[in-house]
Amino acid sequence: MKIAVCIKRVPDTEMRFAIAGDGKSLDQAGLKYDISDFDGYAVEVALRLTEKDGGEVAVICLGPDGVQETIRKAFSMGAARGVQLKADTVPFDGSAIAHALAAELRDGGYDLILFGRQSADAGNGTVGPMTAHLLGLPCVTAISHLELADGRGTAHRELEGSAESVEFPIPAVLTIDEGIARPRLPSLKGIMAAKKKTIDVRPAQLGEERLTVQSMALPPERAAGRIVGEGPDAVPELVRLLKTEAKVL
């Protein structure tokens, strides 16, 4: 089984978060980057499938040279091949990204193409299904469970308050939700092997950008809250405030 996983490098905003002077991007100073969380799950799903049934995992990442570090992380987990689709910046518009990925994937002969459900930075969740459409492949999004047998797959999708079981033929495009497979930590052996692997670099054939960032701002601050009191004796006052001030009871 030949599997491609499309991964994204995203800034780690847990440590530091500031908006740049241009008012529409993130201040880059001192930022660290990592693989987008759902994409890590997608890499893990791909590795488990090929460990079970044989085959190979290729990772594809679009962006500037910094993304090679993200590709090497996937190598150290066990990915065999890596492709950088080189672009100075990653567009915000998912359809522009999907065009570049589809061009790379079209003649790749992949049985499965995996994505994370959505990225941790732009959070659009559009690139997977858009790429599937461009490739003419069936697509199932946000899957929490996957089984493959005899050229067909069954996946579960979580809905609000329920879930659906979905059947699809292979080849297919799948986007991966959390809960399906916790990503492994790179092994020492994997890290050593990752250093020896080469990354194919090709220019990204981006589509037209029709969705652009005009400005970026911090969310409105919530009014300062207050500690009503300590221990169970504070409960009646809390209930009074919920009733008369917040009016939510």
Binding site: T126, P129, M130
Partner: peptide
């Protein structure tokens, strides 16, 4: 932008060759 809409909207956008403002 529900579980269903997040699945459907990008497919429609791709079919029309337009972009989508998501969520």
């Amino acid at each position: 932008a529900s579980a269903q809409g997040r699945d459907l909207a990008p497919r429609v956008a791709a079919a029309l060759g337009v972009s989508l403002a998501s969520d």
